[in-house]
Protein backbone atom coordinates (compact mmCIF):
# COMPACT_ATOMS: atom_id res chain seq x y z
CA UNK A 1 0.00 0.00 0.00
CA UNK A 2 1.28 3.42 -0.78
CA UNK A 3 1.55 5.41 2.41
CA UNK A 4 0.13 8.78 1.57
CA UNK A 5 -2.96 10.61 2.76
CA UNK A 6 -5.72 11.41 0.31
CA UNK A 7 -6.30 15.07 -0.46
CA UNK A 8 -9.34 14.94 1.80
CA UNK A 9 -7.39 13.51 4.72
CA UNK A 10 -4.66 16.09 4.26
CA UNK A 11 -7.30 18.79 4.36
CA UNK A 12 -8.72 17.29 7.58
CA UNK A 13 -5.25 17.15 9.12
CA UNK A 14 -4.58 20.80 8.29
CA UNK A 15 -7.80 21.74 10.01
CA UNK A 16 -6.94 19.53 12.98
CA UNK A 17 -3.57 21.13 13.54
CA UNK A 18 -5.28 24.46 14.10
CA UNK A 19 -7.03 23.02 17.16
CA UNK A 20 -3.88 22.30 19.12
CA UNK A 21 -1.17 24.41 20.67
CA UNK A 22 1.59 22.17 19.28
CA UNK A 23 2.03 19.32 16.86
CA UNK A 24 2.76 16.78 19.58
CA UNK A 25 -0.81 17.23 20.79
CA UNK A 26 -2.21 16.27 17.38
CA UNK A 27 -0.70 12.79 17.35
CA UNK A 28 -3.84 10.98 18.50
CA UNK A 29 -6.25 12.55 15.99
CA UNK A 30 -3.61 12.19 13.27
CA UNK A 31 -3.30 8.49 14.03
CA UNK A 32 -7.09 8.15 13.94
CA UNK A 33 -7.06 9.75 10.52
CA UNK A 34 -4.29 7.43 9.41
CA UNK A 35 -6.20 4.42 10.66
CA UNK A 36 -9.25 5.52 8.68
CA UNK A 37 -7.12 6.00 5.60
CA UNK A 38 -5.03 2.85 5.75
CA UNK A 39 -7.11 0.53 7.95
CA UNK A 40 -4.28 -0.08 10.38
CA UNK A 41 -0.98 1.44 11.45
CA UNK A 42 2.33 0.04 10.27
CA UNK A 43 5.74 1.43 10.95
CA UNK A 44 5.66 3.01 7.52
CA UNK A 45 2.49 4.82 8.54
CA UNK A 46 4.07 5.96 11.82
CA UNK A 47 7.02 7.38 9.90
CA UNK A 48 4.62 9.11 7.50
CA UNK A 49 2.56 10.64 10.34
CA UNK A 50 5.76 11.76 12.05
CA UNK A 51 6.88 13.42 8.83
CA UNK A 52 3.52 15.15 8.40
CA UNK A 53 3.60 16.46 11.98
CA UNK A 54 7.32 17.22 11.85
CA UNK A 55 7.98 15.35 15.09
CA UNK A 56 10.27 12.37 15.84
CA UNK A 57 8.80 8.99 14.87
CA UNK A 58 9.56 7.81 18.42
CA UNK A 59 6.89 10.19 19.70
CA UNK A 60 4.32 8.72 17.34
CA UNK A 61 5.27 5.18 18.35
CA UNK A 62 4.94 6.01 22.06
CA UNK A 63 1.37 7.17 21.53
CA UNK A 64 0.53 4.36 19.15
CA UNK A 65 1.63 1.62 21.56
CA UNK A 66 -0.02 3.27 24.57
CA UNK A 67 -3.58 3.34 23.23
CA UNK A 68 -5.50 0.17 22.48
CA UNK A 69 -7.74 1.70 19.83
CA UNK A 70 -4.91 1.82 17.33
CA UNK A 71 -4.41 -1.37 15.35
CA UNK A 72 -1.19 -2.81 14.03
CA UNK A 73 -2.94 -5.35 11.78
CA UNK A 74 -5.95 -5.31 9.45
CA UNK A 75 -9.46 -6.02 10.76
CA UNK A 76 -12.56 -7.37 9.05
CA UNK A 77 -15.14 -5.20 7.38
CA UNK A 78 -17.05 -5.12 10.67
CA UNK A 79 -15.00 -4.69 13.83
CA UNK A 80 -17.01 -5.90 16.82
CA UNK A 81 -15.87 -4.55 20.18
CA UNK A 82 -17.63 -6.11 23.15
CA UNK A 83 -17.52 -4.15 26.37
CA UNK A 84 -16.29 -6.21 29.32
CA UNK A 85 -16.27 -3.58 32.03
CA UNK A 86 -18.23 -3.80 35.27
CA UNK A 87 -21.72 -2.69 34.21
CA UNK A 88 -21.74 -4.79 31.04
CA UNK A 89 -20.20 -7.71 32.88
CA UNK A 90 -22.96 -7.70 35.51
CA UNK A 91 -25.58 -7.45 32.77
CA UNK A 92 -24.16 -10.50 30.97
CA UNK A 93 -21.35 -9.54 28.61
CA UNK A 94 -19.85 -13.01 29.10
CA UNK A 95 -22.92 -14.57 27.47
CA UNK A 96 -22.78 -12.03 24.64
CA UNK A 97 -19.15 -12.89 23.99
CA UNK A 98 -19.76 -16.65 24.16
CA UNK A 99 -22.66 -16.36 21.71
CA UNK A 100 -20.61 -14.28 19.26
CA UNK A 101 -17.70 -16.72 19.50
CA UNK A 102 -19.98 -19.64 18.73
CA UNK A 103 -21.93 -17.88 16.00
CA UNK A 104 -18.88 -16.43 14.18
CA UNK A 105 -16.67 -19.45 14.85
CA UNK A 106 -13.74 -17.29 15.95
CA UNK A 107 -12.06 -16.38 19.22
CA UNK A 108 -11.38 -12.92 20.61
CA UNK A 109 -8.72 -11.18 18.54
CA UNK A 110 -9.49 -13.20 15.39
CA UNK A 111 -11.11 -12.40 12.07
CA UNK A 112 -13.56 -14.64 10.19
CA UNK A 113 -12.00 -16.38 7.18
CA UNK A 114 -14.22 -14.37 4.80
CA UNK A 115 -12.75 -11.18 6.29
CA UNK A 116 -16.10 -9.85 7.35
CA UNK A 117 -15.93 -9.86 11.16
CA UNK A 118 -13.25 -9.19 13.73
CA UNK A 119 -14.05 -9.84 17.38
CA UNK A 120 -12.31 -7.98 20.21
CA UNK A 121 -13.10 -6.94 23.76
CA UNK A 122 -12.78 -3.42 25.11
CA UNK A 123 -13.06 -1.59 28.41
CA UNK A 124 -15.91 0.77 29.24
CA UNK A 125 -17.17 2.75 26.26
CA UNK A 126 -19.23 5.06 28.46
CA UNK A 127 -22.60 3.66 27.43
CA UNK A 128 -23.52 1.77 30.57
CA UNK A 129 -27.21 2.58 30.16
CA UNK A 130 -27.13 0.20 27.16
CA UNK A 131 -25.37 -2.63 29.07
CA UNK A 132 -24.49 -5.20 27.92
CA UNK A 133 -23.36 -3.37 24.83
CA UNK A 134 -20.94 -3.52 21.96
CA UNK A 135 -19.56 -1.25 19.28
CA UNK A 136 -19.52 -2.26 15.62
CA UNK A 137 -17.21 0.05 13.71
CA UNK A 138 -18.52 3.46 14.85
CA UNK A 139 -21.99 2.44 16.07
CA UNK A 140 -23.14 1.38 19.55
CA UNK A 141 -25.62 -1.47 20.04
CA UNK A 142 -27.34 -2.54 23.25
CA UNK A 143 -28.76 -3.83 25.46
CA UNK A 144 -27.86 -7.10 23.80
CA UNK A 145 -29.32 -10.56 23.95
CA UNK A 146 -29.07 -13.49 21.56
CA UNK A 147 -32.10 -12.38 19.51
CA UNK A 148 -30.78 -8.83 19.19
CA UNK A 149 -27.34 -10.14 18.22
CA UNK A 150 -28.87 -12.28 15.46
CA UNK A 151 -30.73 -9.25 14.11
CA UNK A 152 -27.64 -7.04 14.18
CA UNK A 153 -25.43 -9.59 12.50
CA UNK A 154 -28.08 -10.19 9.84
CA UNK A 155 -28.34 -6.44 9.15
CA UNK A 156 -24.60 -6.40 8.63
CA UNK A 157 -24.58 -9.31 6.19
Amino acid sequence: MSVEFSEKALEQLRELLGHYPDRQAAVIPALHLAQEEFGYITQEVEDYVAKLLEIPATDVHQVFTFYTMFRDRPVGKYHIKVCESVACHIMGSTNVLDYLRKKLGIDVGQTTPDGRFTLTTVECLGACEMAPMMQVNDDFYGPLDEKKLDEILESLE
Binding site: A57, T58, D59, H61, T65, F66
Partner: peptide
Protein backbone atom coordinates in the same frame (compact mmCIF):
# COMPACT_ATOMS: atom_id res chain seq x y z
CA UNK B 1 15.34 10.54 19.65
CA UNK B 2 16.30 6.87 19.50
CA UNK B 3 14.65 5.86 22.77
CA UNK B 4 11.05 5.99 23.91
CA UNK B 5 8.71 4.42 26.43
CA UNK B 6 6.37 2.10 24.61
CA UNK B 7 3.19 0.20 25.62
CA UNK B 8 1.56 1.02 28.93
Amino acid sequence: FELGIFNR
